[in-house]
Amino acid sequence: MKKVLIMLAVPRCQFEQVLPEWELVYPSNEFFTHDELMTKAADVDAIVTVYGNKLSNEVIDAAPKLKMIANFGAGYDNIDVEYATKKGIVVTNSPDPVTEPTAELAMGLMIATARRMGEMNTMLKNKEALKWGVMRNLSTTLVGKQLGIVGMGAIGKALARRAVASGMQIVYHNRKQVDAATEQQLGARYVPLDELLKSSDVVSLNVPLTAVTKRMIGERELALMKPSAYLINTARGPVVDEAALVTALQNKEIAGAGLDVFENEPIIPDALRELPNVVLMPHLGTATHETRGEMSLLVAENIRCFFNGETPPNRIN
């Protein structure tokens, strides 16, 4: 009987359905500790990692039978893929289920930030002094505004569809320009990053965390943005220089930010918490009941395919 270790208590029934002959090493609490992983990895054939939770090379070394690491999440910066590859271990991720919910949250952050929903909600719930009136508490509409999408992958395209439906114009920057048919369908125009930053009313970051994208938005890039513009980040926290962002917000170099991810999660700088023009979420881009189940199903399918001699649908090395 083959054995799979599942690092965190993600939905289990999908694994039982797809891998009925497998032994599931599943945490009785929320997650396995590092020491528990070191012990339990000794005889497993596969490990299910979860984004945001590091799988150390030490644990990999403690698993001599390990043939596969199946990541629960699209981003896989929690795994040393190069090290796994050197050891002959296949690595997969689970990108498809995260697309729509992440784009949905990015759109929600855009609306909440521009329309000052977070700020007004906080004031009303805290019973702070808030004057009502026709010309008070004004905000910004997204209709007719330009959205600059940095990273036109699946999530970027899903966000573009929502933004177009809301009456926005789309420019984008990507490693490679997307095909003409997709550009035409979305009404999207490719521009260099600096032009996107200078001209957009909202900038949404939808890139993976890599050596190239780490802190790609820093002091220089924020200074290029309009004072009336908003920054939305549902990608990874380290894509943005958080200290530079705090300074830009405090100095009103940009109008506000909607953030689902942070540089040192779960630590959030007090300065970000205190700024009224910032909407914060605790990394909830994919956090729906439906998405979690779909992710477990896809992870289990990747494992089933690989050990049946087939090519896993989401192999990344």
Rank of each mutant, 00 (worst) to 15 (best):
M120F: 15
L66Q: 10
G133P: 09
S139D: 13
L55D: 09
E128F: 00
V59W: 12
S94R: 03
A41H: 02
V59P: 04
K87I: 03
E36D: 14
D77K: 05
T122N: 13
K125M: 12
M38N: 01
V48A: 02
K54Q: 14
T92S: 12
I60A: 08
E119S: 04
D96A: 15
T39S: 14
N78H: 09
A114Y: 02
A114K: 14
V81Y: 11
T102F: 01
E128V: 00
T39A: 14
M107T: 03
M120K: 04
N71R: 09
L130Q: 06
G118K: 01
V44I: 06
Y83R: 02
I60C: 07
Y83V: 03
W132A: 14
G52V: 01
K87P: 02
N78E: 11
N71Q: 10
A46Y: 08
Y76M: 03
P64F: 05
K86P: 03
M135K: 10
M120S: 06
S139Y: 08
I111P: 04
K40D: 00
L124P: 00
L124S: 12
L55S: 01
M107C: 05
T39C: 05
M38F: 12
I89N: 03
K127P: 00
P97Y: 12
R136E: 12
N121L: 08
T122D: 13
A129F: 14
N57L: 01
F72M: 08
K131D: 01
I111N: 10
K86W: 08
A103G: 07
M110I: 15
M123D: 05
S56G: 13
P101D: 03
A62C: 00
N126V: 02
L138I: 09
A84M: 04
A42R: 14
A103P: 07
S139V: 00
N126G: 13
V44Q: 04
N126Q: 12
K127F: 02
E82L: 09
G108F: 00
S56Y: 13
V81L: 13
K40Y: 10
P101W: 06
S139P: 07
E128S: 04
E58Y: 05
V134A: 13
R136N: 13
G52R: 14
G52F: 08
E104F: 01
A70C: 07
K131L: 15
